[in-house]
Amino acid sequence: MSEQVEMDELAYSSRMVNWAPLGKLLFVMCLLIVGIVTDSILVPIISFTIGILLMAYSTNLKLPLLIILAIGEAILIMVLGSGMISILGDHSQPAIWEGQFLWFSIYMTEDSFNLAWLIFFRAIAGVTLMLAFASSTPIPLLSYALKGLRIPNEIIELVVLIYRYAFLLLERFLIMIDAAQCRLGYNGSMTAMKSYAGAMAGTFIFSMELAEKSEAALACRNYDGTFPIFRRPANMSVLWVILSFGLAIGLYVFGMYTGDVINPAKLFAPLFGWDL
C-alpha cells in the first residue's frame, strides 16, 4: 500500500502532471499498439527509449528507486519469460542450440531466439510507457478526464471518493499499527495477528462512522448529486492526436522497412559460435 502512496506523490510532483491526461493516454496507447503490430525489434526499442526519456523528464532526472525497481522487476520477469520462448522453438526448423536441462528439452531456433528478443522489448517498452503515464497522472485527474469520454458520473464520483477515503483509511490503519506497537501488540506472532485484526476492525468502524458523518457534511456543502470539477485537466488538443498518430504511423512505416535490419541471432552468432 505504501507503494501506492509513493506513486501518488510521484504523480503529483511530476513535471508532466499538467499535460492532458487523455493526450498522454492516447500517446502511450499508440506507441504500445504500434510496438505490437510491427515485427521490427527497433520499434519497441524506440518506444522503450521514449518511455525512459519521458520518465526522466517527468521526475526531473531523479528516477526514484520505486520506478527503477519496477522496471528492474519487469526486466527480470521478461528475461525468464523470453528465455522460455527462446528455448521452445519450432522443431521443423534447424536448431542453433539443442540440449537437455533436467526434464526440459531445449530446442532453440533462430526464429525463436529473435522472437524472444522482440517480445522482451515489447514487454519492457509497454511497462515503461505505462509507468511513465501512471507516474505523471494522479488518479483524480484521470477520472476527471474520463468524464470527457462520457463515462457515467456515478462511476467517476465513486472513483474520486474511494481514492480520497483510501488514503484516510490507510492513514488511520498505520496510526493504529503504531498504537498497537505501543501496547506491545507485536509480542509474539499470535498477538501480532490479533493486533492486525484489531487494527483492521478499527479501520472498518472508522470508515462506517466517516461515511455516516460525510452524508450530513455533503448536504451542508450543497451537494446535489453530481461531483463538480473546478480546474479541469487540460483538454486533449489536436496536437496530441497528431503527435500520437503521426508518431505511430511513422514508426509503423519505419518498422516495415527495418524488419530485417537487426537480427539478434546474427548479432550473437559470433559470440556463441552459432552456424546460421
Binding site: P140, V160, Y163, R164, A217, F230
Partner: peptide
C-alpha cells in the same frame, strides 16, 4: 476536517 473534505486536491 476529514469529515467535510471530499476532493483530493486542495483547490478542488
Amino acid at each position: 476536517p476529514d469529515e467535510q473534505i471530499f476532493c483530493s486536491l486542495v483547490e478542488e
